[in-house]
Structures are given as structure tokens and as C-alpha cells.
Amino acid sequence: THFTSQQLQELEATFQRNHYPDMSTREEIAVWTNLTEARVRVWFKNRRAKWR
């Protein structure tokens, strides 16, 4: 999946605040970024792996 810079900005900003967002937070992010909750969940999983 290719993310727009706007989507990445929103995802990264949320990641800085919370590395493990809950389901409702992921659903909110999905609405803001026009992505599915599953895409958001996978992005956070991959981002945490990169962060370690």
C-alpha cells in the first residue's frame, strides 16, 4: 500500500503519542486518513518493528 504524505503525517503523529493505539483509536485514524482499520493496524505493527 502506498500512503500519501498526509496519511503518513497523521499516522506518524499518532505513533509519537501512542505506539499501541486501541481499536477505537485505529478506527478514528482510518476515518481521518481514508484507510481501512486493517491497513492502519498493519502500519502500526510494521512501524513498531522499525522503531525497535
Rank of each mutant, 00 (worst) to 15 (best):
Q16H: 12
R52P: 06
A38W: 12
N34W: 04
E28C: 10
E10R: 15
A49H: 09
P21Y: 02
V40R: 00
A38R: 13
F3R: 02
R48A: 05
M23W: 11
R17K: 13
T14G: 11
Q9I: 11
E27M: 15
H2N: 10
A13V: 08
H2K: 13
L8P: 00
R48S: 02
Q6D: 11
R26Y: 08
A30P: 01
T25F: 07
N34F: 07
S24W: 08
S5P: 14
T36Q: 04
L8K: 07
L35K: 05
L11F: 02
K45D: 06
R48V: 07
I29V: 07
E12Y: 04
T1P: 12
S5W: 14
E10N: 09
F44Q: 00
A49I: 11
T25V: 09
N34P: 01
I29W: 02
F3I: 10
N18Y: 06
R26T: 05
T36C: 06
I29C: 04
L11S: 01
Q16D: 06
M23K: 15
L8W: 10
E10K: 15
F44W: 02
K50V: 13
T36A: 06
A49K: 15
R52F: 14
R41F: 06
R39F: 10
T4P: 02
S5I: 12
R39H: 11
E37H: 04
F15A: 03
S24A: 14
E10S: 13
A38M: 13
E27W: 09
P21L: 02
A13P: 01
R48G: 02
M23R: 15
Y20M: 05
N34A: 07
E10W: 15
V40K: 00
P21C: 06
F3C: 05
R17H: 08
T1L: 12
V40M: 00
W51R: 05
Q7L: 06
E28I: 13
E27Q: 13
W43G: 00
M23F: 14
Y20V: 04
D22W: 04
T4H: 04
V42W: 14
E37T: 04
T4A: 03
T1V: 11
L35A: 07
V31L: 14
E37I: 05
R26D: 02
T33K: 01
T36I: 04
K50T: 09
T36N: 05
H2E: 12
A13T: 09
P21H: 01
A38C: 09
N46I: 12
A30K: 02
K50L: 13
E28V: 09
T33W: 07
W32M: 15
Y20T: 05
S24C: 09
K45M: 10
Q9E: 12
V42N: 12
A13I: 10
T14D: 04
T1E: 12
L8V: 09
E10V: 15
K50N: 08
E28N: 09
E12S: 02
H19N: 05
A30Q: 02
T36E: 06
Q6A: 13
Y20D: 03
A49M: 08
V42H: 13
Q7I: 08
A38I: 12
T25G: 06
D22N: 09
S24L: 12
A38T: 10
E27S: 11
L35C: 07
H19K: 14
W43P: 00
L35S: 13
A13M: 12
E28M: 13
L11D: 02
E37L: 05
S5F: 13
W32P: 01
T1N: 13
H19R: 11
W51A: 08
Q7P: 01
R41N: 07
V31K: 14
L35F: 03
E27V: 13
F15G: 04
R17Y: 11
D22H: 05
F15L: 01
K45Q: 09
F3A: 02
E37S: 04
M23P: 05
R41I: 04
Q9A: 14
E12D: 03
N34E: 07
R52N: 11
E28L: 14
Q6E: 10
R52D: 09
P21K: 01
T4W: 05
T1I: 10
T33C: 10
R47Y: 02
A49C: 07
V31E: 12
W43N: 00
Q7K: 05
R52W: 11
I29H: 01
R52I: 11
A13K: 11
N46Q: 13
A30I: 02
N34M: 08
V40W: 01
D22T: 12
Q7C: 05
E12F: 05
W43V: 01
